[in-house]
Nucleic acid binder design. Structure first.
Length: 665
DNA sequence: CGCCAAATTATTTTT
DNA sequence: TAATTTGGCG
């Protein structure tokens, strides 16, 4: 292996990639070849004889982790089974998988995603007899998260929720489940309480890298700090201008923490942009300079100015989608671009749906990433709930989800008696049901006992099957047939056969994925716990960038990606900046500006922005105002597109002539 | 006591 | 628009 680091990278990148030891802070502007540099850095470490098992690279998404391994593999031509690249959460989960017994959990613990967490909170609120209408569950989710990760303490307004929080903690532990915050906080706790463990992991991971450092939370920082403070071989890479996750606890002041905790660190700035044309970069620079709290930097590019940024004002969102579709077809033809060279970015998921409609109508191939995730579809969650209950009988949240799905005649009242029985015997709901169905003296109706009996029998039967040598996917498929899930869907949607078909197709897709995973020979531990963990941490299906399809996504999902041509839709006040952040404070507004900045800097050659004159919001049409951020871009860089959606006649004729000329030659 | 249908309400971003 | 909650019926 000969990397030729020096010729493959520019001077700054070279320094960054070749400095393996000691603390390194890399400020990498948008499009500065960050990924390339990181890839080379890891490859270089391997070349220097550092064992792959000593390297830990933490990324922000699973996709990024996977891609990083893949790239290093291509560069080095080696299989890298011991190289650890993972998200913080996945890494935390892996640690817990082997060590959680130290903390009094069972190692078949379940990971609760946001939906599970909210449904648990809801149950707690109900049990405490607090009227639900006074409670914003989403807000509680956030609050509990900040409390758990020490982002904030109890205040006079929030202390009234303390009781709910404490009950939440008790219950989630009793269910042998952990939430996303636990995946970071419990490993920290382990390290602090069991010094031998900390030593073990410090010894193993001697070289640590953190990508997207601006999006790490204080807790995550504490976690890597614990691991790396002894050997100090830590390299963090980030760009404060691209910090867009502060609502999730990301805190780019971690850069300051890093500077404090790792004195004599080496700082490297990557400011040469290889991605975008001069105009696009200039617009981005002008925009972001309106932020007050930032590290001053000046991105520059050696490439030409390029075409100007186009701005169009459609009448409404239908017009907008039409424009985008037409324009993409036109550009693809004129410039010989493939559809996958296009990215259509939006601020919020709901804006994707009208776009999707129009893409279907126009028969334009597209992929959507983000959006309502595959694993959070109801039919998939139902199946997963069965799998989770099979692996962890203490999981009351998932028990409640499926006990009456499909209908078993166990309604509100029966459930209440089950609950009180479980409570008085200090049992999980599932154990309670098991016990009830055997205990002839228990105070329940025969019919209910009958139901419980058949339910537990069924679960036990599949549990045995699942842990025998038979293929797991096959077992789950049998289970779905056994409970007649299709019949359940039909009764839920009696007048919509197509929906039922669609949902069953999703279920089948899920089973196929499971099967493929199970049969994959690269899979070292093909057990069901691994799989359930994995899908808890994977919100969306990892769509390998599909060729020949336009990419539709939220701006958040576009981070780290680039497209030849970018369409930014819904560039309106109250969308970006989002209405909520306008209400909040200047800080939120700055984050929205960074979001806009990220969107713009995804574009390599062309950028189109659309801002509707009016838009349907919750059934009524309201007039909209162009985004205030548009005014922060030098007007000379923007050219306005007027009503030319139906390509004017001459232009159409011209296109036609071109086409004819092409065919003639 | 469960089930169905009508009313209601909620929509930022994601590990 | 779609999923969830509530109220009345069988």
């Amino acid at each position: 292996m000969d990397l030729q680091l020096k010729s493959a990278l520019n001077d700054k990148q070279y320094i960054a990639a070749s400095t393996s030891s000691g603390p390194v802070l890399i400020i990498a502007g948008a499009g500065s070849g960050k990924t390339r540099m990181i890839t080379y850095r890891i490859a270089h470490m391997l070349e220097c004889g550092i064992s792959q098992s000593n390297i830990l690279a933490l990324t922000f998404t699973n996709k990024a982790a996977k891609e990083m391994t893949e790239r290093v593999r291509q560069l080095t031509g080696e299989k890298l089974p011991k190289l650890t690249t993972a998200t913080f959460h996945a890494f935390g989960a892996a640690i817990l998988r082997s060590e959680i017994h130290y903390l009094g959990y069972d190692d078949n613990f379940t990971i609760y995603d946001q939906a599970d967490k909210i449904s648990l909170i809801k149950n707690v609120v109900r049990e405490l007899h607090i009227p639900l209408e006074q409670i914003d569950l989403y807000e509680l989710d956030n609050l509990f998260s900040s409390i758990k990760t020490n982002r904030s303490g109890w205040s006079t307004e929030t202390s009234r929720y303390k009781e709910i929080y404490e009950e939440y903690l008790l219950q989630i532990k009793a269910y042998n489940a952990v939430d996303f915050d636990d995946l970071i906080m419990l490993p920290i706790k382990l390290f602090e309480e069991v010094p031998a463990l900390l030593r073990k992991y410090r010894e193993r991971y001697q070289y640590i890298m953190v990508d997207e450092f601006q999006d790490t939370s204080l807790a995550q920082y504490r976690f890597v700090h614990l691991l790396s403070q002894e050997h100090r071989n830590i390299c963090v890479v980030g760009d404060d201008d691209q910090s867009i996750y502060s609502w999730r606890g990301a805190n780019y002041e971690n850069i300051v923490n890093f500077e404090r905790d790792f004195p004599n660190f080496k700082e490297i700035r990557l400011e040469q942009n290889y991605r975008s044309t001069g105009n696009i970069l200039q617009a981005a620079n002008a925009l972001i300079s309106h932020n007050t709290k930032r590290k001053e930097k000046q991105l520059w590019t050696g490439t030409e100015k390029g075409r100007s940024i186009a701005l169009f004002h459609p009448d409404d969102e239908d017009h907008e989608s039409e424009f985008i579709c037409t324009k993409i077809k036109e550009l693809a033809f004129e410039q010989g671009l493939s559809y996958d060279d296009f990215g259509v970015l939006v601020r919020t998921n709901n804006l994707l749906s009208s776009l999707e409609q129009t893409f279907i109508q126009n028969q334009l191939p597209y992929t959507i990433s983000g959006g309502k995730s595959f694993f959070s579809r109801k039919e998939i969650k139902d199946i997963i709930a069965y799998m989770r209950l099979l692996t962890n009988p203490d999981d009351n949240v998932n028990f409640l989800r499926i006990i009456n799905t499909p209908r078993r005649g166990i309604g509100r009242v029966s459930l209440e008696s089950l609950r009180s029985y479980a409570r008085s015997h200090e049992l999980s709901l599932f154990s309670a049901v098991t016990k009830l169905s055997l205990d002839m003296n228990a105070p329940i109706k025969d019919r209910l006992r009958q139901m419980c009996c058949s339910f537990t029998e069924m679960i036990e039967c599949y549990k045995t099957k699942l842990f025998s040598r038979q293929p797991m996917a096959k077992t789950i498929r049998a289970l779905i047939g056994d409970i007649d899930y299709r019949g359940h869907l039909i009764s839920e949607h009696p007048d919509n056969e197509r929906l039922v078909q669609w949902k069953m197709k999703n279920v089948d897709l899920f089973l196929q994925m499971f099967e493929r995973w199970e049969k994959n020979p690269d899979n070292i531990h093909p057990n069901i716990y691994e799989y359930l963990n994995r899908i808890s941490l994977t919100s969306k299906v990892e769509t390998d960038k599909e060729q020949g399809k336009v990419n539709l996504m939220t701006i958040h999902a576009s981070k780290g990606l680039e497209f030849d041509t970018v369409f930014l839709a819904g560039v309106e006040d109250h969308i970006i900046p989002h209405a909520r952040s306008i209400q909040e404070n200047e800080q939120s507004l700055e984050e929205e500006r960074r979001l806009f900045y990220v969107a713009i800097t995804r574009a390599k050659r062309s950028l189109y922005m659309t801002s509707c004159k009016q838009r349907k919001v919750m059934r009524e049409t309201i007039a909209t105002v162009p985004s205030r951020f548009l005014e922060e871009i030098p007007q000379g860089l923007i050219s306005h597109i007027d009503e030319e959606i139906e390509t004017s006649d001459e232009e159409a004729a011209d296109l036609f002539a071109q086409l004819r000329a092409k065919l003639a030659t």
